[in-house]
Nucleic acid binder design. Structure first.
Lengths: 127, 127, 127, 127
DNA sequence: GTGGTCTAGACCACG
DNA sequence: GTGGTCTAGACCACA
């Protein structure tokens, strides 16, 4: 499993460990990480992104306590078996709902009409 | 100026003071707050949303240091005169760019096609 | 809230942060910590037991993610409101079931009859 | 000697090797394993419980260094001769003391009276 | 090799 | 004052 699977933005306001947890949630929901897949080791991820191993370990630990990952003693972390298949698109879309609602609120605060926002998003999604 | 202009979610992970600053930025860019408009007092906002006055004060202070607001003796805070008019739509759209990019990244991690996301957003924007 | 409420055994095999989490679970279930009670600060607990603040913070964080505690921004941690009352004795007894089962297994491995074990436990509980 | 003598819970927080060592300690103290008895081979135990042979080997090694077991060429591990007889009940009871003390502490944290705990334990021991 | 725990200490975010 | 995040590094537990 490749450490480059995860992306990390150390400068973002969102803490690194949470960035990782949330990416894992989406990658598993989307099926890019399937049940049984093993994850890059804590040390690999930390080395690749030049962050502290403990930060990665913390993310993995939270993901484990959420039931996303399982620890295989001595071998590393794997995607938990409960997530047998890629989740339905409707369920995956639901994971974006909070972000979509925030976007709508902000669009309104900016008094922007819907069209330019949708046009811009269409363009970005198409690239 | 009504304290209900601002919305605040104390339970959100984003700090309250930053929620306020960013809303002010957008409301001013969108023209809902025009140059010279006076803002609700720190006390009113804090009382209305049941948050700490110091938090509101801090948000106002940051907005002032960004040049969004000005302190007028005896009148409290008012929208700064530099923001004479509503900004151009293209400039306002630019303020959404980071959120749009994050949305695109998350859509890809979820392996979602563009259509359902755009459809959902269209619906929310139309309500 | 007194830092001496929690006891910690740094030499025990069980990690300190988990000792704390499990104590919190029992103290809340037993009603010694009621909803809304505030907890000793991370720094107080760490200082009192001569352990690292991060270790305490980690325990509090886990307890929060389990819904036992709530964070009051800027004020510290309080017992979550969901735990309105002391739980029924039967429910509290259930929390001891794993330990009781382990004790029974060990008693059998030692080929000990029930009486001396019960007698010893009775004595310890009565002190 | 049957591999099913030992029970192992790979999912438990307690490390597997320690589960084995402590069981051996109790089985020998209780006389279920007598001096000279031979133990199931590392391979058998590992195969039976689907755990890593190295884990079993490590447990046996620790038990040997504690003087519980002896390595006999060609015969594998046997119970050491120093443990000629079943130990006195009082000595065996002492092996349970830490668990009993932990149980008492937890009972108090749960604010449980002694009776229900003793009743439940009596029931479990009688089954 | 894997992950886990803890420390000491810096610095930030929040109220 | 509160808790949160991250680091660097030591050391342990496990397979």
């Amino acid at each position: 499993m490749d450490a480059s699977l995860l992306t990390v933005q150390p400068a973002a306001p969102e803490p690194i460990y949470r960035q990782i947890v949330e990416q894992l949630r989406r990658l598993i929901a989307g099926g890019q990480l399937a049940a049984g897949d093993s994850l890059p080791s804590v040390r690999d991820v930390a080395g690749f992104h030049a962050i502290n191993p403990m930060t990665v370990s913390r993310a993995y630990g939270i993901a484990e306590s959420e039931g996303l990952l399982e620890r295989q003693r001595g071998k590393g972390m794997v995607v938990a078996g409960t997530h047998k298949t890629t989740q339905a698109a409707s369920h995956r879309l639901a994971l974006l709902e909070p972000q979509l609602q925030a976007l709508v609120r902000q669009t309104r605060e900016l008094e922007l009409p819907a069209e330019p926002v949708l046009r811009r998003l269409t363009k970005l999604l198409g690239e």
